[in-house]
Amino acid sequence: MRLSKVISLLAALVLSSAAALADAPRRVVSLNLCTDQLAMLLAAPDQLKSVSYIARDPRASAMPEEAAHYPINYGGAEEVYLLNPDLVLAGAYTARATVNMLRRLGIPVYIMRPALTLDEVSIRITEMGAALGREEAAAALRSSFETELAALRITDGPRPRAAIYNANGWTPGENSLPSQVLKAAGFTNVATEAGFAYGGSMPLELLVMAEPDIIISAAAYDGHSRAEDILTHPALRALKGAVAGEQVGDNHWICGTPHVLDAVRNLSAARRALLEEAN
C-alpha cells in the first residue's frame, strides 16, 4: 500500500469520527427509569444532563448511587425544555402529552421500547448506543453482557416450577423479562402454564392450586397498601412455609439492562439450594 493512500485513508477515518462526534447529542435528558440506566451506562462524560427522579429510588432502580451524581427531573415538559436538551430519552409508556409537547417545541425525542426478552436487552443496548453516538461503548457493553449471560444460563437439569407473585397478585407471563430471566436461571414459570401471555393478576386461589416449588416476591414498601396485603395472606404464608421463598427486587428486572444478570445469578443460586434440599 502506498503511503499517500494510507494517509488519505487515515484522514478519512479521522474526519468521519469527528463528524460522528459532531452529530452526537451533547445535552441528553432522560425521562424514563430504563433509559436512565442505559444512558448512565453508555453516555460520555458530561453528555447526560439529567435522569428521572425514579432512578434514585433503590426500590426501582438498579443504579441509585450513580443516579445521585446527576440532576433529577420529574418528567414535566416545562422543566425538561428549560434544561435545553438536544435529545430527550423516553420510554414507550412515558406520558404522551409530554413527549408530543417536546416534539412540537422542536426537541428530538428518542423513544425506547421495553425489552421483553434477554435478546432484546442486547438490542436495546445497541440502539441506545446509536442514539447517543456511543456505538463503541455499546458494543463493549453488549459483548460483556452476552458473555456473562451465556456463562450463567442454565439449559439442562431439572426445572423447578416458580411463581413470581407481587402486589395485587401481579405475575409476569411468558412474554416478559422476568419470565425470561426465570427461564435462563433454570426455572419454569407457573404463570406460563396458567396461560398468562404478558402478565396479569393471578388470583391467590389459582396460585395455591398451581402448587409452585418456589415463590418469588419483592419486599413490601413502607406504609401500608391493600395491594400488598395479599403478600401476607395466611394462605400464601402457609404455601411459602411449605415451599421456598425468594426475594428479587423489582430493581433487578424492571428494565432490560445488564443488571438483569444479578437476577439470573440470585435465582440460579436459589435453584441450586432448592435442588440440594430436594435430594
Partner: peptide
Amino acid sequence: LSPNPFAANDIVFWMMGSLADRSMT
C-alpha cells in the same frame, strides 16, 4: 401522602369496599 406507591390505588377500596383476598385474620 403515603410513601407506598400502591397506596393511592386504595382510595377506590376505601370508598367502595371489597372482600377480595380477605383472610381469617
